[in-house]
């Protein structure tokens, strides 16, 4: 399995990934997966990851990526006026 960007999240990530792969290949791909059965494991993983993204300043980068596209739109609109 691929590693997490945060080594401290590797364990919870692996548990979630295994659950997801099983659900995806055995249920979703067979048209039987309408609900996410790994939600509880994802919650643990996300809890760990969110903190790691914050510590590394990546959360700001994600936010900027969204703001960046807004900024461009605004600039493009101004140019047309």
């Amino acid at each position: 399995m691929s590693s997490s960007l945060a080594p401290e999240c590797n364990e919870v990530k692996e548990r979630y990934d295994s659950c997801f792969l099983k659900w995806y290949s055995e249920k979703y791909l067979r048209g039987k997966g309408t609900t996410d059965e790994c939600a509880a494991l994802f919650k643990d993983y996300k809890h760990c990851l969110t903190r790691a993204l914050k510590e590394r300043g990546i959360d700001r980068m994600l936010e900027e990526a969204r703001e960046g596209s807004r900024e461009n739109d605004a600039a493009n609109l101004r140019r047309k006026c």
């Binding site: 691929s2 590693s3 999240c9 990530k13 792969l21 791909l29 994802f42 996300k46 993204l53």
Partner: peptide
């Protein structure tokens, strides 16, 4: 192919990819 897409890292051609994380997933 979709399964391989989710599982494509690591592979012998992707040694520059250091990590992969899921930020969000929904149906």
């Amino acid at each position: 192919v979709t399964l391989a897409y989710f599982l494509r890292y690591p592979n012998p051609y992707s040694t520059h990819v250091l990590s992969t994380d899921v930020i969000d997933r929904s149906i």
